[in-house]
């Protein structure tokens, strides 16, 4: 049963990353289109992290990559993992859930940005020896992703519906 009290929302904007261990907080990424919303949660320490990545590979813009690594899946996600490990999380305890990678604004899917974001994410998971616990990927709808720190509950909202990941 989810807690009825109001959680403080920490918005993770495009290119942003956040980590929290405050039980009264939830991390939220709004309007994920082809972007990828990534959450990690350590149920032992009750620490959660979120990244909101826009593009797969950082090499297309080295300056932006330096200024805002969270924009890119290939450097943003490893940085988030690293930051959680620095908080004392153990890699094998990290529960990964991911949402987004849709074909919004690219109906012909010429650029395959969503798929590419997802492919690079999967590569990072494989290289780190981690499984993806759950995902809500693809399609052509925008999504909002929420991670509640106290419970580790992850919820995706899309087209007026809400479901737990």
């Amino acid at each position: 049963m989810a807690s009825k009290r109001r959680l403080k929302t920490v918005v993770v904007g495009i290119g942003g990353m956040a980590i929290s261990d405050s039980p009264d907080e939830s991390l939220v990424a709004h309007s994920l289109g082809s972007c990828l919303g990534v959450t990690f949660y350590d149920p032992v320490l009750k620490v959660g992290g979120m990244a909101h990545c826009m593009l797969p590979l950082s090499r297309i813009d080295k300056e932006k990559a330096k200024a805002k690594p969270g924009l890119f899946v290939d450097i943003g996600v490893p940085k988030l993992i690293e930051a959680m490990l620095r908080r004392g999380c153990r890699k094998k305890n990290l529960v990964a859930r991911v949402a987004g990678a849709a074909r919004v604004m690219d109906r012909a899917n010429f650029f395959r940005i969503g798929e590419r974001n997802h492919a690079v994410f999967r590569k990072i998971m494989w290289k780190n020896g981690l499984f993806i616990r759950a995902e809500d990927i693809g399609g052509d709808q925008a999504r909002t992703l929420r991670l509640e720190i106290e419970t580790g509950r992850v919820v995706v909202q899309s087209e007026g519906r809400e479901r737990e990941l």
């Binding site: 797969p56 590979l57 395959r112 798929e115 590419r116 492919a119 690079v120 999967r122 590569k123």
Partner: peptide, 12 residues
């Protein structure tokens, strides 16, 4: 080929 490269070899 593009799909399999992404899914299996993690290459774009």
């Amino acid at each position: 080929a593009i799909e399999v490269l992404e899914r299996y070899a993690f290459m774009l």
